[in-house]
Design a protein around this nucleic acid. Sequence first.
RNA 1: GCCGCGGUGGCGGAACUGGUAGACGCGCUGGACUUAAAAUCCAGUUGUAGAGAUACAGUGCGGGUUCGAUUCCCGCCCGCGGCACCA
Length: 809
Amino acid sequence: MYDHRQIETKWQKRWVESNLYQVKADSTKPKYYVLDMFPYPSGDGLHVGHPKGYIATDIIARKRSMEGFQVLHPMGWDAFGLPAENYALKNKVHPRVAMEKNIINFKRQLNLLGFSYDWNREINTTDPAYYRWTQWIFLQMWRQGLAYESFAPINWCPSCQTGLANEDLDDGHCERCGTLVEQRPMRQWVLKITAYADRLLNDLDKLPDWEEAIKEMQRNWIGRSEGAEIKFQIQGEKAEISVFTTRLDTIFGCTYVVLAPENEVLQNLKNKIKNWAEVEKYIEEVKNKTDLQRTDLNKEKTGIILEGVKAINPFNQEEVLVYAADYVLNSYGTGAVMAVPAHDDRDFDFAKRHNLLIRRVVVNGDGEKDLELAFTDEGKLINSGEFSGLSSAEARQKMSAYLEKNNCGQKQVNYKIKDWVYSRQRYWGEPIPLIHCDKCGVVAVPESELPVLLPEVKSYEPTGTGESPLAAITDWVKVKCPQCGAEAKRETNTMPQWGGSCWYYLRYLDPKNEQVLVDKNKEKYWSPVDLYVGGAEHATRHLIYARFWHKFLFDIGVVNYEEPFTRLKHVGLIMGEDERKMSKRWGNVINPDDMVERFGADALRVYEMFMGPFDQAVAWNTNGLSGARKFLDKVNHIFSDKQNLPISENKTILSLLHKSIKKVSEDIDAFHFNTAVSALMILINSISEYKQANQALPLNKEQLSKFIQLLSPFAPHLSEELWEKIGQEDSILHSTWPNYDQTLLKDDVITYIVQVNGKLRAQMEMPAEATENEVIARAQTEVTVSKWLEGKEIKKSIFVSGRLINFVV
RNA sequence: GCCGCGGUGGCGGAACUGGUAGACGCGCUGGACUUAAAAUCCAGUUGUAGAGAUACAGUGCGGGUUCGAUUCCCGCCCGCGGCACCA
């Protein structure tokens, strides 16, 4: 048993004193940038699951250093935003005070685990010197028309009392507090992420080292669909209804048109709609439904006919009925659809319920029999005028041409992703650096006056009025218009939590620069991030936002790469021992402080990497942690003998050492930490077996030192201690990562498997250079084999060199 | 409903491009040491039958390809994650 407290504090102190982890750009060396998603410093501190990703990046960082890279491995705090503020409100302290206290605790906990962060580069999104640049980027977007004011209804969380982006919702509930979100029309700032939708989608293909699952989530979230927009004239009116469809080929099957109840076309047709009173009542009813009630797939589709209104299908001049129904969403496409009940499930349901005409126009080898369900496959067109006989795909081509020629529509691409609602009616965020002037309109705060400091307030509780608490600070709100000098007002909304995290990885490159966001040369040297590790929950939030901002910064020449994160790995959760998510609510939280106290940081690191595949969720098990500790004790034991043990070099073990160097090196790079640890255990077990048996070590000192190096990224404290013990003076981090010797990987003796009809019957040792004939001859003499061959004819012998021989009888 | 991932001992999990299924760890059983316990060490640990050598079965289920399938193909079942009246 080694004294982990003594060893770990000793080395942590030395690492700080020698500035071991401080790095500078050095163009004579290759660089490697390893990044963790930075945490928001909550008051609960870290639980044992948080460091899992940090341990992995630390292992990679240490290995890369030993491989000769200049490694950037920074850490900081995502300290603005709702979580920090809600915590502060609950505990009745100022968010700044709470945040500062929490950071001290987080940093203490991280240091306890021996991470190799370069703390000289620490950043904090709430630091004015930092958020000055968050505001600066916002201003650049505003100048380019990418930030705009909108008054459309948005998601409103009644508990957090602020507007939210679509990305902040979880099944219609506030992602933070779980409250059901409402729709509220209000003034807000919106970022035009849709302008980047195509690039965000297409460039995913340029990221081969991102996990397919994450890319797929982003693709779904962006939700690109190609189709056509078609104008239906309203009979006897100048007005028209535009619909969006991806199935233009089915347009001859359109038997009615449906408008979303919020669609303004309805209001414009008020006078023509004979049953307006009823229609208005329906619109009211829908307004009072929550989004969840509306989108419940199981509910019956409601709707109301617009009496007196007919729409004209531009392809066959047919007059069709017009409905208002809430199964059509106003926020997607044009807020109106052409209903083709024969070929769309939703339209089919609605048509059945309202007894509407169902006309089939696409077939696929099944004749024209009556439909019991919508036929949504593609096929061959029928009953479609001049287009009959074409395939769906051909028809779409020709029909789009028809639309354009007749000026009644065109090809159109739609996205599910919405522009990003960027303002929050809360205190704890970056002030939006804009000024409202009666004469000049919206005016930017001059860049020389950035940052716009977040003022101190007496009450930072949300107001719920649609204004942030900042609106109450008249002294702060009142300013002179930078353009005309007249009395004007500051924008009082603040930025969301996601703002600061959209670009923090760039600030680490040059954290103290007061002139620019990041120095060009430093950016050129360190960019892009080579490895980024964090939770999968950010796939459609932070990771889309950050890619969007990065592309914008690329467009304005701040960065020189189009994609910020070359390789992305997501970390699997560590669950409680009861297999539930660790949470105070279940009382199953394991605190790393206790585990480090009992077993040591090295054991915790080894265990978390050994638990299972990195990206998979696994339940915590303290017994497993003690197993990791036993392994380290065994390691320590081998190196700690006072007397110098005799050495009798053993070729098998030497070969195993080199196989282990290969396996551990490759496994670390592939994020297969669990099998890397297992390889280290196998190696140490066989060394210690030899030691037990002969009282002689099978490897010499130099060979054994390679093992310490392999272990060092996982267990840096103990490794430094043993490294010193074997007489090394410099830190193990400055040593060179071991290489394996190809010639030592081959075994002299190979265990051959002998099968009869594919069933294992015997094993035998053969010299590596044995030929096929020798192996076959020998195999037939094995008793356990000959017994199965007796009296049978060998039809075939299958020989796999170095592995097996299989007799087919 | 759509998309993605997965299903292997009592448990976490290994298994290279089809070639010894269960590495490594936990737990459990027995033994050594000890007055005793802990720690440590040794042996065993997929199931069934057998004292044992051994035999048979076995990687969610049913088929198939192959000398040989956890791995490939077809058809299902279950679990997890994401998206979802997106036209």
